[in-house]
């Protein structure tokens, strides 16, 4: 692929990505009130999306095969306990990640 073709490919991906980000705001600009059902959707979707993102970030885990999702499961449990205990976002994330990095070496 030439530089020109590569730049066109990159811009095509950028355009596709931009469309997905701009579309909701184009359909419902500041001056136009979105209908009630859209506003209700907007008030619950952020929480549903966060649930989806947790699953999305784990999509490469395959529990039926070794190590049976153990590093992820144990680390998430650890994050949960740490978070209940310290209630500090950074400590929970750093602790969980450190444990996970250790576990993938143990289970490798």
């Amino acid at each position: 692929m030439s530089h020109t073709q590569a730049v066109i490919t990159i811009l095509a991906v950028a355009l596709g990505t931009l469309v997905t980000r701009v579309l909701p705001f184009l359909l419902f600009p500041d001056t136009k009130d979105p209908p009630q059902w859209v506003r209700k959707l907007g008030s619950v979707l952020p929480y549903a999306m966060m649930g989806l993102l947790v699953v999305y970030s784990l999509k490469d885990v395959w529990p039926p095969a070794p190590p049976y999702g153990a590093p992820e499961g144990i680390s998430l449990l650890f994050v949960y306990i740490l978070h209940k205990w310290k209630k500090n976002t950074l400590i929970s994330i750093a602790g969980g990640t450190a444990l996970y990095m250790a576990l993938v070496r143990v289970f490798a």
Binding site: A12, V13, L15, G16, T17, R21, P24, G42, M49
Partner: peptide
């Protein structure tokens, strides 16, 4: 970028993979 030059396919992939952004936008209106 490693494959053949197919900009329309690239655009379609971006739309599909990033469709979740539509929800973020709706949530942030």
């Amino acid at each position: 970028l490693l494959g053949a030059f197919q900009p329309v396919y690239a655009l379609g992939m971006a739309l599909m993979i990033n469709a979740r952004h539509l929800f973020y936008g709706l949530s942030m209106l």
